[in-house]
């Protein structure tokens, strides 16, 4: 008797839930809010080696951005810190810690290891992966000579044994076969500019990238237009805005004063 009751209640609850969801969706459709779908594939798996390549030289920062987006997701899910390996090169871009706030990353959780040779960098990455001490390992290789199939295979095997994701940012000129789990190429994409009539320039929108999955085990290569949402700290598919102003309509009185 009681069992049936409980079941009934359960049934009621699920029904309510469905209704609630229904209502939500209907609510959304009434206001025709743009839907933000999440990415359909699980991007960075534990114990995998991923390469991130910019499409062109100018897209290097986009590659860094997508790396940060990945790291942000990893750090939100796990405790622990990240080892960031970079070659000592005075002319290259510096990681700017205050800028990490935009990706919701606490700079204290990143330990930067600066190395003088590529050999040391690969060694440091391998050791970090096997140490059971970190959440993820990132290597920045803007120029490479030693990194090849063997090196990548070593790194991938180590990563899969330890179950830690390893990310490697390479140069746009990088070529040759490597044994990675996933390879992305990233290009910047014009953001959804928020233009208003009061301003001569539009405001900057959220960063958007064209994220191409060029190699992967088990997933077909694909190309997505993605957007980083600063508000929710999530990478989502970029969707077109509805045909409406993003801000409240301007006040004609002030406008008149300005023109007059």
């Amino acid at each position: 008797m009681t069992a049936i009751k409980i079941q009934n209640r359960k049934g009621e609850k699920t029904l309510q839930k469905i209704q609630a969801v229904d209502w939500d969706i209907s609510g959304a459709s009434i206001h025709s809010l743009p839907e933000i779908p999440t990415l359909p594939f699980n991007l960075i798996k534990n114990g995998s080696l991923s390469e991130i390549l910019p499409v062109s030289y100018r897209d290097r920062v986009a590659a860094l951005g997508i790396t940060m987006a990945f790291l942000s997701a990893i750090l939100r899910k796990n405790k622990g810190s990240i080892i960031w390996c970079q070659l000592r090169d005075p002319d290259r871009l510096h990681l700017h810690a205050p800028g990490l706030a935009a990706f919701g990353i606490d700079p204290l959780r990143i330990t930067k290891v600066t190395l003088s040779t590529e050999k040391d960098l690969l060694w440091a990455m391998e050791e970090a992966v096997t140490s059971n001490a970190v959440t993820a390992v990132v290597g920045i290789l803007w120029s490479e000579k030693l990194y090849d199939f063997t090196a990548s295979k070593r790194l991938r095997l180590r990563a899969s044994e330890a179950g830690i994701p390893a990310l490697l940012v390479r140069s746009h000129r990088a070529n040759g076969t490597t044994a990675v789990d996933m390879r992305f190429s990233v290009a910047s994409h014009a953001s959804q500019a928020l233009s208003t009539k009061e301003r001569p320039f539009a405001r900057l929108g959220n960063p958007e990238w064209q994220l191409n999955l060029t190699k992967s085990r088990g997933i077909k290569p694909r190309s997505d237009h993605v957007r980083w949402h600063h508000e929710t700290l999530r990478l989502g598919m970029a969707a077109e805005l509805g045909n409406r102003m993003s801000q409240s309509p301007h006040r004609p009185a002030i406008r008149l004063l300005q023109t007059g």
């Binding site: 810190s81 810690a97 700079p107 930067k112 600066t114 003088s116 040391d120 140490s131």
Partner: peptide, 20 residues
């Protein structure tokens, strides 16, 4: 992690392993 960072510091120099 401390062991790892110690190993880095001893191999590549203290200045090479930094936090922000």
């Amino acid at each position: 992690l401390q062991t790892l960072l110690d190993r880095y510091s001893n191999r590549f120099g203290r200045e090479s392993v930094g936090c922000f």
